[in-house]
């Protein structure tokens, strides 16, 4: 009995060292795979989306890239003379996103400053929980709010002729982006060392001056990241804008005009587009455009952040 135990222990110890090395190697490999997988996924998705769109350029699809890039006419399912112009859709996305950011950035950053600097104890905890809850509301529910609540308010309150429009979509998207901006923005402000605030106080700065002159410059990168995440959410959102923007192809002349966005177009038309037909492929090309927009936004952010870092190092 005793001998057996010793033998077993010996074996176990042997195996432990072996499996320890093996385990470590495995974990290192796994982490490598995790790290690289993000790149692989992005490349794979891009290859897929671009692959579905690419035949437009050499196949016989009656598609002209010049029309795609310059025309405001979008009538891809027309029986005799379809038009595939992206301009009105692009302007629609731009209009809704810009309005939502104009509303969400001040509101979100303001809330982040309040939660992080001017608010303590129970109130702070409650606020943080409620804001996180706001982020968890599904976009379809936001769409419902847009159609059922916002739309009558816009018609009767503002005298608009239609309740689902840029204003409706912009407000809904702003409300959806605010929680993202608040959570990330608050983390960024929290990361500024207290010694900065104390130094400000010692110099006789008021609380607002500390926020404006000390915290904002110190937390610039994080706040920018917060805003860009908000922009990402606004551009990429589909369901809520599909329901709240009115889904009408046109160049808007006021915020009370309905518009159609790039994402909503894909969502509404992909299901019924003839597979591998022209409309199907043009919708994928819109996907490529959205990809490009996301890439430009992220790249700009990177360049700005690097620029800020560079200046700080000088």
């Amino acid at each position: 009995m005793a001998t057996a135990e010793v033998v077993e222990t010996g074996v176990t110890v042997e195996r432990d060292t072996g499996s320890f090395r093996l385990g470590e190697w495995l974990i290192v490999a796994l982490i490598h795979v995790c790290g690289i997988s993000a790149i692989l996924f992005v490349l794979a998705i891009f290859a897929f989306v671009f692959g579905e769109a690419a035949p437009l350029f050499w196949g016989d699809y009656g598609f002209s890239f010049a029309e795609f890039a310059t025309s405001t006419h979008w009538s891809p399912a027309h029986p005799t003379s379809p038009h595939y112009g992206i301009v009105a859709l692009f302007v629609g996305t731009l209009a809704v996103s810009v309005l939502s950011m104009a509303l969400a950035v001040p509101l979100g950053l303001g809330a982040a400053v309040y939660v992080s600097e001017f608010c303590e104890g129970k109130r702070k905890e409650t606020l943080k929980i409620v804001i996180e809850l706001l982020a968890a509301i599904p976009s379809v529910v936001w769409g419902f709010i847009g159609v059922m609540v916002m739309s009558p308010i816009i018609i009767h309150g503002l005298g608009a002729s239609i309740g689902t429009n840029i204003l409706n979509g912009g407000v809904i998207l702003a409300l959806m982006s605010v929680p993202v901006i608040v959570s990330v923005g608050e983390d960024a402000l929290k990361a500024v060392p207290d010694s900065f605030r104390e130094a400000g106080l010692a110099l006789g700065a008021s609380r607002w001056e500390i926020v404006y002159r000390v915290l904002f410059p110190a937390a610039k990168n994080g706040l920018l990241a917060a805003v860009l995440l908000g922009v990402g959410r606004a551009i990429g959102e589909t369901m809520a804008v599909l329901m709240a923007t009115g889904h009408a192809v046109q160049i808007p002349t006021s915020v009370l005009d309905p518009v159609q966005t790039l994402t909503a177009t894909i969502a509404a038309e992909m299901g019924e587009a003839e597979q591998h037909g022209t409309q199907f492929r043009v919708l994928f090309l819109i996907g490529v455009v959205l990809f490009a927009v996301a890439f430009v936004v992220n790249l700009t952010a990177d360049i700005i952040v690097k620029g800020i870092r560079g200046k700080q190092n000088d």
């Binding site: 405001t72 006419h73 009538s75 027309h78 029986p79 005799t80 003379s81 038009h83 009105a88 239609i162 689902t164 599909l242 009115g246 889904h247 009408a248 192809v249 046109q250 160049i251 005009d257 309905p258 159609q260 509404a268």
Partner: peptide, 14 residues
Amino acid sequence: GKDAHFRQGISAQN
């Protein structure tokens, strides 16, 4: 009309 187009700005419902 089969060869004509709809005007722009029609709110398209799903």
